[in-house]
């Protein structure tokens, strides 16, 4: 299996959140983001809103946005697919300018997943909804996160960042 050498650090993600004035992170933890969760939890400028089903995340973010705050949604690609109608209705339907940071479970760079693996459906799912996405594999890609925030703000639409670092200890 071919893997990357460079890594994506949770500190880099948090720095991007801070640089873009994120106020809230609406999240359902996944196996890749625990260290990021701990960092966010310790950051006094960011409030965590824990959900128990990913479909709750987009309407929560929509409410925060209407109220003048700047949330991000932090969920896994499995949960993104579970919340499809919610993303459609509360995200696209309400012109919600929010960045979804999506853990790209199953990303292997070279393909080779089994037919049912969620990675196979992640990008087609976003394409179907017409949601633009940026792939972030390592720290050098991190400026794409700011690009996603700019895209969301300028288009008044949800924009996705796919975090493709499943094999490099993002979880520490």
């Amino acid at each position: 299996m071919t893997q990357q050498n460079a890594q994506l650090s949770p500190e880099t993600i948090l720095a991007e959140f801070n640089k873009n004035d994120v106020t809230h992170v609406v999240t359902l933890p996944d196996s890749e983001t625990n260290w990021l969760y701990l960092l966010m939890d310790a950051d006094p400028t960011i409030a965590i809103i824990p959900v128990s089903r990913e479909g709750q995340a987009m309407p929560t973010a929509a409410g925060l946005t209407v109220g003048g705050k700047k949330p991000v949604i932090l969920i896994q690609n499995t949960g993104m697919m579970e919340s499809g109608d919610s993303i459609r209705g509360w995200g696209l339907g309400l012109n919600t300018p929010v960045v979804l940071v999506i853990g790209y479970r199953g990303w292997t760079r070279h393909g080779g997943n089994r037919p049912s693996d969620v990675a196979n459906f992640t990008e087609p799912f976003l394409f179907t909804l017409g949601i633009k996405y940026f792939l972030v594999e390592n720290d050098e890609d991190s400026t794409r996160i700011s690009m996603a925030f700019e895209e969301a703000a300028s288009t008044n639409r949800p924009v996705a960042v796919l975090i493709a670092d499943e094999y490099h200890g993002f979880n520490r």
Partner: peptide, 23 residues
């Protein structure tokens, strides 16, 4: 008032929560 119709069923409570936290 924020009458939104039915963007996607089941989401109103979460929307109102977000709004309450923001305001």
């Amino acid at each position: 008032d924020i009458p939104l119709g039915d963007p996607a069923m089941g989401g109103h409570a979460s929307f109102a929560l977000g709004l309450a936290l923001a305001q």
